[in-house]
Each structure stands twice: as structure tokens, then as C-alpha cells.
């Protein structure tokens, strides 16, 4: 547990909760990133602008982090291009089939007391833990 960052992670999490609340209060939308991105792929009138601008906000935040806190992108994991492609395909396909990701189900859904989101969060946590177990403890930590 030497890398545990309870305070920074708690405050960072609170910012994420604040962000989701701002989007709901002002625009009435759910801050589910997979849904926001997927919606940009099939543009509909009056339902695309806010998605593009939200992603623009994410990227702007990313650039600010890179400028002022480059260490936030410092620690990657040993994965080949093939592993990253498979991972991306599974995340993209899985979040659409299951209607949400860590933000939509894990943060927004659980905060609303949604049973669907509770089940989804339990499912992706379980398979995430199982996958990391296989990679780190059966396959030597790299893939």
C-alpha cells in the first residue's frame, strides 16, 4: 500500500462528483463518458454540441495537467500494442452493450441508487480484478 494516496484521491473524486452535478444541474445530462463519446459517433440534431464540448473540456483539462502536473501521466503499465487494442475494443463494445462505464454506472448511477448500476459496477469490478489477477500473478505482469 506504499502508493496509497487517500487525500488526493478523495479530493479528486469529489471534483468528479461536482462535475457530474454541474452537468446535471445546468444541462440535465448524465456525466457518463462512454455514453457521451458514443453519442458523438451517431450525431443527432441538438444532441451533439454538448458532447463535443464536454470532450473538449476533458482534453483541455488533460493539457493543463500535462503543462502543470506532468507526473499525472507518468506511470503506465507494460502492455503491447495488441493488448491495448484488445483492451480498447472490449471497453468500447462492453460499455455500449452494458450502457455505461465507471462514470455512468460507478459514479452517477450509484449516486442515484440505481440497481442496474450497482449490478454493472459489481460485474466490471469482478472481471477487472480477475483479469489483473491473471496478468499479474499467472502471466508475470506484462502482456
Amino acid at each position: 500500500m506504499e502508493h496509497f494516496t487517500p487525500i488526493a484521491s478523495l479530493i479528486g473524486g469529489m471534483l468528479i462528483g461536482l462535475s457530474a452535478s454541474l452537468l446535471l444541474l445546468f444541462d440535465g445530462k448524465i456525466a457518463g463518458i462512454s455514453g457521451i463519446v458514443a453519442g458523438m459517433l451517431s450525431p443527432q440534431k441538438n444532441d451533439t454540441g454538448w458532447r463535443v464540448v464536454f470532450v473538449g473540456g476533458l482534453l483541455t483539462g488533460g493539457f493543463l495537467l500535462k503543462l502543470f502536473a506532468p507526473q499525472t501521466f507518468a506511470i503506465g503499465i507494460p502492455r503491447s500494442a495488441a493488448a491495448l487494442i484488445l483492451a480498447g475494443l472490449l471497453v468500447g463494445f462492453g460499455t455500449r452493450l452494458g450502457n455505461g462505464c465507471t462514470s455512468g454506472h460507478g459514479v452517477c448511477g450509484l449516486s442515484r441508487g440505481s440497481k442496474r448500476s450497482l449490478i454493472a459496477t459489481a460485474a466490471f469490478m469482478a472481471t477487472g480484478v480477475a483479469t489483473v489477477y491473471v496478468i499479474n500473478h499467472l502471466l508475470g505482469g506484462a502482456l
Binding site: S34, A87, G94, G98, I119, A120, G128, V132
Partner: peptide, 19 residues
């Protein structure tokens, strides 16, 4: 819902990234 979330979790653990 369950299958989609399960597949997402595998990709999440494999790549270390969610969306």
C-alpha cells in the same frame, strides 16, 4: 447489462484505462 459490464471490466483490467 451484465455481459457488457463484464466485458468492459476485462478491457479495463487489461489496459488500465476506462473511457
Amino acid at each position: 447489462l451484465v455481459a457488457g459490464a463484464a466485458l468492459f471490466g476485462i478491457g479495463w483490467g487489461l489496459g488500465g484505462f476506462c473511457p
